[in-house]
Design a protein around this nucleic acid. Structure first.
Length: 277
DNA sequence: AAACAAACCTGTGCGC
DNA sequence: TGCGCACAGGTTTGTT
């Protein structure tokens, strides 16, 4: 579910409302959420610590603790972090609950693909190896045309597959790749290595513009309401989607063709067959 | 290197 | 109303 803009919205919520606070108590219901280590490792690693920073890389949240450890949280498809007054009813699938001075930070995740792991940053390469493998994050690291060009060179994969690969660029998922490719006027199935300098610049600009607008709008909340921010507030970027979920609608740029939905890489892809090449 | 399918789970929406 | 199927924002793993 959540891609870079949604995770960034959650990160900002954590920074504003959780950083600086002490985790008094930790409850782990479903052990699957903490499968990387164990229920006890996560309870022991979090209890009594104060959250000192909230960072993000791609779709990964990484919070620093005053113990020297860090906690990685990945929401995957249906994970949510919700901050609510202690004592209020917990939503179904509240697998991990952290109590902080009258409030509860709840990790809610119906499909249980998400996970939480407390790790030693000095051993990050072993304990969360995927973090080190992530490509540049367009917001955290910035992304230049030169970097894009170097990484795209010689690649035969379709552009969309390339953009979805977190080891190439970190943070884009199914919604935002489609939005970026439409903004850059590029077809999803064009081989990644065939972009000339002008198209590379267009794609870089599109990545920046789409992500900035989406973050400013608090991310995208689709009709199933799966994604909401820390306080349960929905995002608003779905109202600005130009192609995602809009099959059959006229293309908002050329207004002549109709947005098409095709299966690609096992999921839906939306694009304008007229203005994306 | 890259394409594809399957796996991990649960919920929802749709056609019949 | 009820049933069965398709599908869903992500990532890893195994197979061609």
């Amino acid at each position: 579910m959540p891609e870079l803009p949604e995770v960034e919205t959650v990160r900002r919520g954590l920074e504003a409302r959780v950083v600086g606070r002490r985790i008094e108590r930790v409850e782990v219901g479903r052990e699957r959420t903490v499968r990387r280590t164990s229920r006890q490792a996560v309870i022991d690693g979090l209890t009594g610590t104060t959250v000192t920073a909230a960072a993000r890389r791609g779709k990964y949240l990484v919070c620093a603790l005053d113990s020297g450890d860090a906690v990685m949280i990945h929401l995957r498809m249906t994970g949510k972090l919700l901050l609510a007054p202690a004592g209020t009813p917990r939503p179904p699938h509240s697998h991990v609950v952290m109590t902080l001075d009258g409030e509860e930070l709840r990790f809610v995740d119906p499909r249980t693909f998400g996970e939480i792991v407390v790790f030693d940053p000095d051993r990050a390469d072993i304990e969360v190896p995927e973090l080190a493998r992530l490509g540049p994050d367009p917001v955290v690291d910035g992304l230049t045309s030169a970097v894009l060009r170097a990484r795209l060179a010689g690649r035969s994969r379709p552009l969309k597959a390339w953009l979805l690969d977190q080891q190439r660029v970190a943070g884009l998922g199914n919604i935002y790749t489609d939005e970026v490719l439409h903004a850059a006027r590029l077809r999803f199935d064009r081989p990644a290595g065939t972009l000339d300098a002008r198209r590379i610049r267009a794609m870089r600009q599109a990545i920046d513009d789409v992500l900035a607008a989406a973050i400013a709008a608090g991310g995208s909340t689709l009709t199933d309401n799966q994604y909401v921010g820390l306080s349960g507030e929905p995002g608003r970027y779905q109202y600005q989607h130009r192609v995602y979920g809009r099959a059959g609608a006229p293309c908002p740029r050329c207004r002549k063709a109709t947005i098409v939905r095709v299966p690609f890489a096992g999921r839906s892809t939306f694009f304008c067959p007229r203005c994306q090449r």
